Amino acid sequence: MGIELSETAAREIKTIIEQQELDAENVRLRVGVKGGGCSGFSYLLDLTEQFRDTDETFEQHGVKIVCDPKSYLYLNGTNVDFKDEVMGRGFVFNNPNATSSCGCGSSFSA
C-alpha cells in the first residue's frame, strides 16, 4: 500500500522545493507522526536530504517520500492531498488507520 501523494500535493511540494532553492535530486518529503495534537498524534511533513536505512521509501509523481518505521505503522495507506480553497490552504491527510481526527485535520487518534 504505502503512502500515496496526490498529483496536486506533488505539484505543491515541487513548487516549495523550487521556491526554497533545494536540491531537487536529493531532497525527500519526510512524512511522519508525533505524539500530541488535540487527538493524540500530529502529522509531520518535512523536506530533508537525510534519511535512514530503516526508512520506508516511495516515489509518487516525481517526489521521493520517506517515512520512519514507527510512523509507517500509523500511516500505511494514507493519502496526502493539497487543498487550496476559500476556507483554507494546506495539506490534507486521508488516513484509513485513524479512528478519529480533530476538526482541523492535523491530528488523529488510532
Results as ranks from 00 to 15, higher is better:
residue 41 F to Y: 15
residue 79 N to Q: 14
residue 18 E to H: 11
residue 82 F to K: 01
residue 110 A to R: 09
residue 110 A to G: 08
residue 81 D to C: 03
residue 96 P to C: 07
residue 27 V to M: 12
residue 80 V to P: 02
residue 110 A to F: 14
residue 50 Q to S: 13
residue 34 K to T: 15
residue 62 G to K: 01
residue 19 Q to L: 12
residue 75 L to E: 09
residue 102 C to E: 02
residue 50 Q to N: 12
residue 105 G to W: 09
residue 31 V to F: 03
residue 35 G to R: 11
residue 10 A to L: 08
residue 95 N to P: 00
residue 39 S to Q: 05
residue 99 T to Y: 04
residue 15 T to K: 15
residue 91 F to E: 03
residue 22 L to H: 09
residue 17 I to Q: 03
residue 74 Y to G: 07
residue 90 G to M: 09
residue 41 F to P: 04
residue 30 R to S: 12
residue 67 C to R: 01
residue 89 R to A: 13
residue 17 I to E: 11
residue 40 G to Y: 07
residue 100 S to Y: 06
residue 61 H to R: 02
residue 23 D to E: 08
residue 74 Y to F: 14
residue 73 L to T: 12
residue 71 S to R: 04
residue 87 M to R: 11
residue 39 S to P: 04
residue 16 I to D: 09
residue 60 Q to L: 07
residue 99 T to H: 07
residue 65 I to V: 06
residue 96 P to A: 06
residue 86 V to I: 12
residue 102 C to F: 10
residue 34 K to R: 15
residue 36 G to F: 03
residue 79 N to G: 08
residue 12 E to F: 06
residue 6 S to A: 04
residue 33 V to G: 13
residue 89 R to I: 14
residue 97 N to P: 02
residue 105 G to H: 05
residue 70 K to M: 13
residue 57 T to G: 02
residue 3 I to H: 03
residue 75 L to V: 05
residue 18 E to R: 08
residue 79 N to M: 10
residue 3 I to P: 00
residue 12 E to M: 15
residue 22 L to W: 11
residue 110 A to L: 09
residue 53 D to T: 06
residue 97 N to T: 02
residue 75 L to S: 03
residue 100 S to Q: 07
residue 44 L to G: 06
residue 99 T to D: 05
residue 18 E to C: 09
residue 39 S to K: 05
residue 67 C to A: 02
residue 102 C to L: 01
residue 80 V to H: 04
residue 90 G to E: 03
residue 32 G to E: 09
residue 61 H to P: 08
residue 62 G to E: 13
residue 107 S to M: 04
residue 64 K to S: 10
residue 15 T to L: 13
residue 102 C to Q: 02
residue 45 L to H: 05
residue 89 R to G: 08
residue 72 Y to A: 07
residue 1 M to P: 12
residue 18 E to G: 03
residue 108 F to W: 03
residue 32 G to F: 04
residue 83 K to D: 07
residue 75 L to W: 01
residue 42 S to H: 06
residue 53 D to V: 05
residue 63 V to H: 02
residue 102 C to A: 01
residue 27 V to D: 10
residue 36 G to A: 04
residue 35 G to S: 15
